[in-house]
Design a protein around this nucleic acid. Structure first.
Length: 473
DNA sequence: TCTCTGCTCAC
DNA sequence: CAAGTGAGCAGAGAC
């Protein structure tokens, strides 16, 4: 950052109350506050230090918990502050052109929907949408309602009705277009800082219950990638000038690797050590066929089960997502646990631990307190149990990337690189890389990400470089 | 103007 | 009852 731009972001004067606040440090927009101020306040006032501890770890006594604050969260503050201040360059012209394109598509789509429905209505209103689909067109006599008495018209519901009427596909397409336009294509350019010319997000360090970061105003952790139309938005994330490119580094299957390591399941650890595609390896085991004999459908099902395991699975939930009978889903889950017995044991042990201690923890001792784990209400207890299973996995992944970020930042400073770390998206780090530093930074990032935490499974990191965020993948 | 709801985007 | 963690948008209704 040059001498003039050093001052471009206004420092907002903050009182101690404002700084810490009732909601904790999460409300702090770090790009507006010099780090020295935060440190000053914390050092001066033991009460503040205590509050900081309270924010990050509910109980101070335990050794491991304190280290999460001292060894991860506090060192991470200047790293995040730097990323927020740096911001990211957005191609405004590109988004304006794309907006006009989407606008045209939306208008055409709107007209088709009104014609197909035989009535004009507000497509963006779920209430009106439900009435048109289920009362006028009578697409589903057994249509489900929400707790407020409206018809459900979510994507999963509508997808199943697609064969019933041509209008469904068009509605989903319309929804996609308007989501892209309102949330990303039109919103991002308005958030460009007038002086820096870049978009500055805020990373919340103490919002997510698992230890993940969150990003707001704008949220740069949910930029579309899944669909072709959405993916276009990523082309607007560009380097500052022609001397730089975008470098993206992703952990591969980090949460599954972590559950393999935490559970000590030898079969799954072996799958990762052998370097096979994990979902194919799982399909091979669950459906009892050779790796070569795994077809697309088998892999798709295995992938769903692997995700389900991380989230705390039920036969009902899997059946619904795979659109298969519940019995078949139950059989797949049973086969899974037979093949990976220690995963099952790990899940039971984790829930048992939560019942005994009232919390679960990550590899670095980050805790999540599970209040409802002994509830007599089955639904409430079920949620608590899924939280208990998921938190150590998601949280350990958060520990790992946070530690990597601190190490990468330190190494980049030591080497006085021109390149900058600009975003974190849970299992991915994004950089603006100078042409002269491409190979150096690539090696550095892979090294620090792979070696952040030693586990019993190999950790893989994929790196790409390109002219924008999309091309960097 | 504020708050809640439903929906949809990401990992 | 029924898959974890977030954020933002438009509609709808309360104030």
């Amino acid at each position: 950052m040059d001498a003039m731009s050093e001052h471009y972001l206004q420092y907002k004067p903050v009182s101690i109350t404002e700084l810490i606040g009732k909601k904790g440090i999460a409300q702090l927009n770090m790009r507006d506050v010099p780090l020295e101020k935060i440190k000053e306040y914390a050092a001066e006032d033991s009460d503040i230090t205590l509050q900081l501890h309270d924010i990050f770890v509910p109980k101070l006594k335990e050794q491991e918990a304190v280290s999460v604050l001292e060894e991860i969260e506090m060192p991470l503050v200047p790293v995040l502050a730097g990323m927020e201040r740096e911001g990211v360059m957005i191609d405004k012209n590109f988004l304006h052109l794309y907006s006009a394109e989407l606008d045209l598509e939306a208008k055409k789509s709107e007209e088709r929907i009104h014609t197909l429905a035989g009535v004009k209505f507000n497509i963006a209103s779920p209430k009106q949408m439900g009435e048109v689909l289920f009362e006028k067109l009578k697409l589903d006599p057994k249509a489900k309602k929400t707790k407020t008495g409206q018809y459900q018209t979510g994507e999963d519901i509508l997808s199943k009705l697609a064969p019933e009427h041509e209008i469904i596909k068009e509605i989903l397409r319309y929804r996609q277009i308007s989501k892209l336009k309102s949330t990303y294509v039109d919103a991002l350019p308005t958030l460009i800082h007038p002086v820096s010319g870049r978009v500055h997000t805020s990373f919340n360090q103490a919002v997510a219950a698992t230890g993940r970061l969150s990003s707001q105003n704008p949220n740069l952790q949910n930029i579309p990638i899944r669909t072709e139309m959405g993916r276009e938005v990523r082309k607007a994330f560009i380097p500052r000038n022609s001397e730089f490119e975008i470098l993206a580094a992703d952990y591969s299957q980090i949460e599954l690797r972590i559950i393999a390591a935490l559970s000590g399941d030898e079969g799954m650890i072996r799958d990762f050590k052998d370097g096979h595609d994990i979902h194919t390896a799982t399909a091979s085991k669950v459906f009892n066929v050779s790796l070569d004999a795994v077809d697309k459908e088998m892999r798709r099902k295995a992938k769903m089960v692997n995700f389900g395991i991380i989230y705390g699975i039920s036969a009902f939930g899997l059946a619904q997502r795979l659109e298969i009978p519940r019995k078949e889903a139950a059989e797949i889950i049973e086969a899974y646990f037979t093949q990976y017995p220690n995963i099952k044991k790990y899940m039971n042990d984790t829930i048992e631990g939560a019942r005994t201690h009232g919390f679960v923890q990550t590899v670095k001792g980050r805790r999540r307190y599970i209040r409802d784990i002994n509830s007599r209400n089955q639904t409430v207890r079920g949620f608590a149990e899924r939280n208990a299973i998921n938190a150590p996995i998601q949280g350990s992944a958060a520990d790992m990337i946070k530690i990597a970020m601190i190490a990468v930042h330190e190494a980049m400073q030591k080497a006085s690189l021109k390149s900058k770390m600009i975003l974190q998206v849970h299992d991915e780090l994004l950089f603006e890389v100078h042409h002269s530093e491409k190979e150096l930074l690539k090696k550095l990032v892979i090294d620090k990400m792979k070696n952040a935490i030693q586990l019993a499974v190999p950790i893989e990191v994929e790196v790409g470089i390109g002219a924008n965020w999309l091309e960097a993948h």
